[in-house]
Amino acid sequence: MPDTIAVQPFIDTFPPDAGTRVPDADFITYGEGQLPPALIELWHSHGLGWYGGGRVALVDPGTWMPVLQTWFGSGVTSVPFAVTSFGHIYHYDRVNGADRIQCLDPHFQHNAIVSEDGTAFFAEHLTGSTSHLADLRELHKAARDAQGELAMDEVYYFEPILALGGQVNLDNLQKGNGPEHVADIHRQIAARQYS
């Protein structure tokens, strides 16, 4: 396990919300062979749930895996582990022995590598000025004021969806089941492309 100091910048910037829960030992043991040590340390010390006043959640990969399969096919090898309040999915795999953390932005149909080190992802990327969390800070506050706090696996979103011409406007803002909504974005885009 990494020294907890390594991920302390993340905890300082995004302290765990009241509802975080440490998963059971079997859950953690299952994750130990598949996910970065920094994430396992966060599971051990603080748990799954929302951090930073509902800005980012450490999620159960099993709940969000069907979403990645919808977007990338059943052969996808990366594992979803964190989600922003607007449904950006962070997913992890190892390539040639090195960490790779990607972010799926479903609203603009973009997937990019954001870090090649699990500890740096938490301590530098998420806390940095170029992450989705930094970009969405004010919008998150406005969304929370308008719609209330998110339950686990809920996200804020806009209807109509941004990928099909929707607008970032609080009048269009909704909240609901994150895995269902993010998968539905892909289905709506595909239906439009093939109609």
Rank of each mutant, 00 (worst) to 15 (best):
W64I: 05
Q109W: 11
I101Y: 03
P37T: 10
L136Y: 08
E41P: 00
G53R: 13
H91N: 08
N111I: 11
R100G: 01
H107G: 11
P66Q: 10
G75W: 07
A82E: 02
N111H: 05
A123E: 02
S85T: 12
A98V: 11
Y92G: 02
N111C: 15
R21F: 11
F86W: 04
N111R: 10
P106K: 02
G33Y: 04
L104W: 01
A123V: 07
W50I: 06
Y51V: 09
G19A: 15
A38V: 00
T20H: 08
G47P: 01
F122D: 01
G73Q: 06
Y51W: 05
Q69S: 07
D99I: 07
T70L: 10
V59E: 05
A123K: 10
A25G: 01
P23R: 14
G73H: 03
C103N: 09
S78W: 01
V22K: 15
L104Y: 01
S85H: 09
R21I: 14
G47A: 11
H44A: 02
H88A: 06
V95L: 12
M65D: 08
Q69M: 14
R100N: 05
L39Q: 04
N96I: 07
P37C: 07
P106M: 04
G52N: 06
G52S: 07
R21K: 15
L35G: 00
F122E: 00
G53E: 11
G49S: 11
N96A: 15
E32P: 00
T84P: 07
F108S: 08
F122W: 15
A57P: 02
P66L: 09
P23V: 05
C103K: 14
I113E: 12
A134I: 06
Y92N: 01
T127F: 04
F121G: 01
T20R: 15
T127C: 14
G33M: 06
H88M: 09
A120Y: 06
W43H: 10
P37Y: 14
H44Q: 13
G73N: 03
S115Q: 03
G47D: 05
L133P: 01
V22I: 15
G33S: 11
R21V: 14
H125K: 10
D117P: 08
P36D: 02
D60A: 12
P23K: 12
D105I: 04
R100W: 01
F108L: 07
Q109C: 10
Q34A: 13
H132R: 13
C103V: 14
Q102A: 12
I28T: 10
W50C: 08
D117T: 07
W43S: 01
N96K: 15
Y92K: 01
I40P: 04
H91T: 02
G19F: 08
